[in-house]
Design a protein around this nucleic acid. Structure first.
Length: 297
DNA sequence: AACGAATGTTGCTGCTCACG
DNA sequence: CGTGAGCAGCAACATTCGTT
């Protein structure tokens, strides 16, 4: 079966005047060049070289083939260059994220920036509902959000990326791995994640289901601020274990699993589809980044 | 993992040409 | 005319790669 390589060898032989010269140029042995040329002649059903003794010249069919082979090789090279250029993406995209996903997203974007220096990213931190509206309206090209029922909008693309398990997080001064969750709820002030957010509302439903009645102390709409207050032992909380923040290794914090089957929220990327050639690259880089991370971190 | 096709190398033979 | 150099062809074997 002939190929671009065979044509390249043919051109080298035609220009070099011998199979030996062609072999030098295309880094093969003379025997391999001869085999390729015989295969090419069989494919074309024509003799391409006239050999009289040690001299070898192009046959009429060879003369006909040479310029066309060179043209084909030039087109092939041009096609290859174009594809290589396309791998570099450029332009500006508007990305949104929940503040809690910023840790992961920022390290993803840092990696992306080194791969695509001409890519500019405008990053907006907003809450879930606003992010969803902005992606649908086109205000944002894509956003990292918690999984929900999405509206039926043409082009809207949802890709689940990772799960965050709901846990109880307390200061290590008041809790150890064997501390019962019920005793924390009975004795310690509770810092609640804003019930107006979908995740906060879900935490509220779980508390009811587990019949845990907290000693309400504060209600905040920032998981990072809540974590900081827990570090200062202002109270304890129930919150998703955020990716890329490594609270489990934090000596000031004690992370406790909820009883029963683990409950998680699913995060992913919502793209509005209009600039999917760029947002797709961000999505794939984020997935690759997640694969590189050690499990559970 | 096994298999087969494609493709390559190695080592040889034979032909031609240039030169003494 | 004998001989060595240069070249192509052939057969055997090795390697790579895709498929089953």
């Amino acid at each position: 079966m002939s190929s671009i390589r065979f044509l390249r060898t043919f051109v080298a032989a035609a220009r070099g005047g011998s199979f030996a010269a062609a072999a030098d140029q295309v880094a093969l042995t003379q025997a391999a060049v001869g085999q390729q040329m015989r295969a090419l002649e069989a494919e074309m059903k024509k003799t391409l070289f006239d050999k009289t003794g040690r001299t070898m010249v192009l046959s009429p069919a060879g003369h006909l083939l040479l310029p066309r082979a060179e043209e084909l090789l030039a087109q092939y090279e041009s096609m290859r260059r174009d594809l290589q250029d396309q791998r570099q993406i450029a332009g500006t995209i508007k990305l949104g994220s929940l503040i809690s996903a910023m840790g992961l997203l920022s390290s993803t974007l840092a990696q992306l920036k080194s791969l695509h220096p001409n890519l500019e990213v405008e990053l907006r931190v907003r809450e879930q509902t606003q992010l969803m509206q902005d992606v649908v309206s086109g205000e944002l090209d894509a956003a990292v959000v918690v999984e929900r029922q999405w509206p039926e909008v043409p082009g809207l693309l949802w890709t689940p990326c990772y799960d965050e398990t709901l846990t109880v997080i307390a200061n290590s001064g008041i809790a150890a791995p064997d501390t019962s969750i019920a005793s924390l709820f009975a004795s310690q002030p509770f810092i609640r994640f804003d019930r107006r957010t979908p995740t906060g509302a879900r935490i509220d439903r779980i508390l009811r289901r587990l019949q845990l009645v907290p000693k309400e102390f504060l209600e905040l709409n920032s998981l990072l601020a809540i974590a900081e207050l827990v570090r200062k032992n202002v109270g304890f909380t129930m919150a998703p274990l955020l990716k890329n923040f490594d609270w489990e290794s934090d000596p000031a914090l004690c992370v406790l699993q909820l009883p029963g089957r683990p409950i998680a929220r699913r995060l992913g990327m919502l793209e509005n589809g209009r600039r999917s050639h760029i947002t797709g690259v961000v999505r794939e880089e984020m997935l690759a980044h997640l694969r590189r991370m050690k499990p559970g971190s």
